[in-house]
Design a protein around this nucleic acid. Structure first.
Ligand code: SF4
Ligand code: SF4
Lengths: 125, 125
DNA sequence: TTAATCACAGACAATTAGACTCTTTGATTA
DNA sequence: TAATCAAAGAGTCTAATTGTCTGTGATTAA
């Protein structure tokens, strides 16, 4: 029961992109060095974000990543979902929707998600 | 980012103990069979709960587990903490308490915990 | 047109955490 | 005294996480 490091990296990368208010792409080298991790690994993570349309990737020299149009409305939850997936935190083996344990666990999860949905990276800068 | 199966087992065991309103101990064999898992593995999980004082263990023939005094006030969160530990879901590497990312993540986590604190196994029966 | 610089992809390796099993010990009871 | 229980520790198996390595294709600057 932990958020993965990848989620941490994704959040920080998004924050960095949002903080550097520029429309010139930021390379993965820069993002990786800032977080002291491998560029190739971070690349995979950023590719996930790109596939979800949160960032744009620019190939070639002076390429890198830029925030996509409408980035201001990307929530923490969106980023987390892109990395961790959207399945429930509580795995029950489907004994039906009426189960009381399931109900409490899922409900609590929703409370967290509601909060994560409220905040965007734009709120941080 | 998943609750462990152990947490599921612990919750179900507690629910079973609470549902069988009897002061004679319930053996791990019974609890394990009901959940279709190994008794020795479940034993380890129940030992954690016992160490936190949530249940009492009775050795010897006709032994097993009983709910401890005051069990009605044991919350979901208590049980989860006993199994998963109490550390934060979001591991940051301590860049200080002022960090905006940290603030959002921890706050969301608290929202979930508040909800998990509201409910007890007693509420389910 | 060539060389450098970038993202992307896939295969792989290392590490860690989760989910168990096996076996022994010690307490309690019949 | 034998059977029945929980507790504890070592060890195993598996899956997920966290990476690395290498090659490919796009873009740009020289
Ligand atoms: S929580 Fe409910 S639905 Fe999930 S495994 Fe348990 S009994 Fe089944
Ligand atoms: S979230 Fe904040 S405190 Fe945590 S690692 Fe990132 S910058 Fe540091």
């Amino acid at each position: 029961m932990k958020f993965s490091k990848a989620t941490n990296y994704a959040l920080h990368s998004m924050l960095h992109l949002a903080a550097t208010k520029s429309n010139t792409p930021v390379g993965v080298q820069v993002l990786a060095k800032k977080q002291d991790i491998s560029p190739t690994y971070l690349s995979k993570i950023l590719t996930k974000l790109a596939k979800e349309g949160m960032i744009n990737s620019v190939s070639g020299a002076n390429g890198g990543y830029t925030l996509s149009h409408g980035w201001e409305s990307i929530s923490f939850l969106d980023i987390i979902h892109a990395i961790e997936g959207k399945s429930s935190l509580f795995a029950c083996y489907n004994h039906g929707p009426g189960c009381p344990i399931q109900k409490v666990m899922l409900n609590s999860e929703v409370k967290m998600e509601e909060e994560l949905k409220k905040y965007t990276i734009a709120d941080l800068i």
